[in-house]
Design a protein around this nucleic acid. Structure first.
Lengths: 198, 198, 198, 198
DNA sequence: AATGAATGAGGATTCATTCAT
DNA sequence: AATGAATGAATCCTCATTCAT
């Protein structure tokens, strides 16, 4: 029963298993390094079944990114008054659920014409995230003009991307907590700079 | 004659042509996206000739990274007293010669066991760069302890990585000049924070 | 209700929809070029439903050929005394309902061991058609011996096959009307030749 | 020696072996039915080697058609005064070297957007053949106008296509010799018809 | 009567690499 | 120093078909 049952016709679960496997593999080896054969091996479903659930590799990876992002976004939902605390919380979530960011960054750096949907999903994700950050910046520094908000938001996001990379390279030798704390403080200063000058 | 000369037995030039082509292709399509066949097509030499000059794809990409880095490093040579100006100069160079950074970041994000030498070269490059930044930080903020220097250096570098990514994604809509300027100012504040606290 | 009605349990109509779709696709892309997935997409029914109505692809195509032939055969039903007029009428019908001919010719030219039933249906169709043509020839040229009848019938049919091909290649640049008219006259001459000689 | 020698680096011969194998397989199974794997198995070279000699399957088949046509064309070179004899000779050649015709007809009947070059080659081949036939018709029936020449040429060619099909279907039961002879005679009559009327 | 899901075999093609010349 | 040819493993993806519901 269990074998036959599990193996046959449970779309919902199969889809999840495929996504899990794809996230694992892509997390380890990147977009190009992720072959359908590997995903198939890891999830136990034949390659052709993967194509029943996802149109092609592109859409599979796009789905991985989206799911990973949705999970990460939950860190934003918590209403936090303290911006420094918020930044830290978001950052921790990033390091724990980094599939979408790693994949997205890779898709960004490689820029061949394929992978349209995976890239599109990541861009949407970025846009949403940036919008959130803008809101937060605006709430925190009400005196700031539009250009100042934009600049600070982009700066805030860029640094976090950089932290991510730094951890990828440096591993545990990077004191992520300290980095985020410094970042939080720095943003406060930056806001002050921008309110006055620019 | 000139034909024969150019076609035959000019290893130096062939090597350069291959490197140029590889840098172009890898700049466009990333590590995996770069196939020997494409490099061959772009440089006009047969694939087998590429293997005469480079042991394998890994070493070819490693060489691309190294050459690109050496060029970029020249921006550091200039003795600048003003740290803000220096940061801006370095950043501009980054955006103009980004092959090694893009490739290196990609190799970092993908992390499969192959590509040993390409990755090694990039790590060396990072280490050297970080050492330079540490020196600069130390010169600029003499009161800072070792951990403070490290943290500030990593922070400075991370933000620049992030800027690079931001430009890749946002294109011209990202005001790179303003970002670097803000970054320079912010680093000054951060140094002050770190001298006092942490 | 009407929705449910149309969607469920109307085997007759589903079968027709499948046949229509298969005829369309096969008309465009040939036997091998016709995939069950494409037929499914065009008729709106899932692939598995096609297998409820038809044993396999082979029988599906066979059914397409048969239906197309039956329709075409109606052009023969009209009792025409004038042989030239009859030839023209038949030819016009051919160009308007060519599914079975195109498919049949393709199955003939490709000759792998599969597709047994589709090919069989086409051969039956050919046999019937040739029998009709023989009758007509016999009625028109009563003095002709058996071999003469056979030869003329085959000749008549072959030329029409050739016209079909010519139109496929040449499109509108082929004056099909003139071809059929010439054919009609030529058959008269041919009959005379055969009555005398051979 | 012989093994190693034969297996390594003889482009000319390998190309021919591939073409031979492809002609065989395609002659048996048609365009779609011809897989690179089969060609590979039959010629002894790995599939990837086939791609060294031919850009893709399309170009491979195109080359098969072209070579087959060139061989067949030799039947035209012989200067024959008697048109009936010429027609018979050409027809015999057709039945003996029919690769290009079978493949070409199949490519004509299937009409998907791919296979551009194979189809193109066949169309060129057709155009050349038709031009030859036009010349012959003109030489034989000098009084004929342009439209008459065209019509007769197309008719002559179409019938031969039809004979080919008839033999494919009927095998030895088709008296090809008698068909061609009848065709030759009939063309003479047709020319007369067309000089007078139309 | 219909369908979502699954499946293994096979499709064309590209890959990095090697070898004899 | 260079190159034409070869090669096996791997790529993504589609195929016809089946089966439980």
């Amino acid at each position: 029963m269990s074998e036959g049952r599990r193996r046959r016709a449970n779309g919902e679960e199969s889809r999840r298993r495929i996504l899990d496997a794809a996230a694992e593999v892509a997390g380890e080896r990147g977009y190009d390094g992720t072959s359908i054969a590997q995903v198939s091996a890891r999830c136990g479903l034949p390659a052709s079944s993967i194509y029943w659930h996802f149109k092609d590799k592109d859409e599979l990876i796009a789905a991985v990114i989206e799911r990973s992002f949705v999970e990460w976004m939950k860190a934003f939902e918590v209403e936090g008054d303290d911006i420094v605390g918020l930044v830290v919380r978001i950052g921790k979530a990033l390091v724990e659920t980094p599939d979408f960011l790693r994949l997205g960054l890779m898709l960004t750096l490689e820029r061949r014409p394929q992978e349209a949907s995976a890239r599109r999903v990541f861009l949407e994700v970025r846009t949403k995230t940036l919008a959130r950050i803008r809101e937060m910046v605006r709430a925190f520094a009400p005196g700031l003009g539009d250009r100042g908000v934009e600049l600070l938001a982009v700066y805030a996001m860029a640094a976090v991307d950089g932290f991510f990379v730094a951890v990828e390279i440096g591993g545990d030798s990077v004191d992520l907590g300290a980095l985020f704390e410094l970042h939080g403080r720095v943003l406060v200063d930056a806001a002050r700079h921008l309110v006055q000058g620019v």
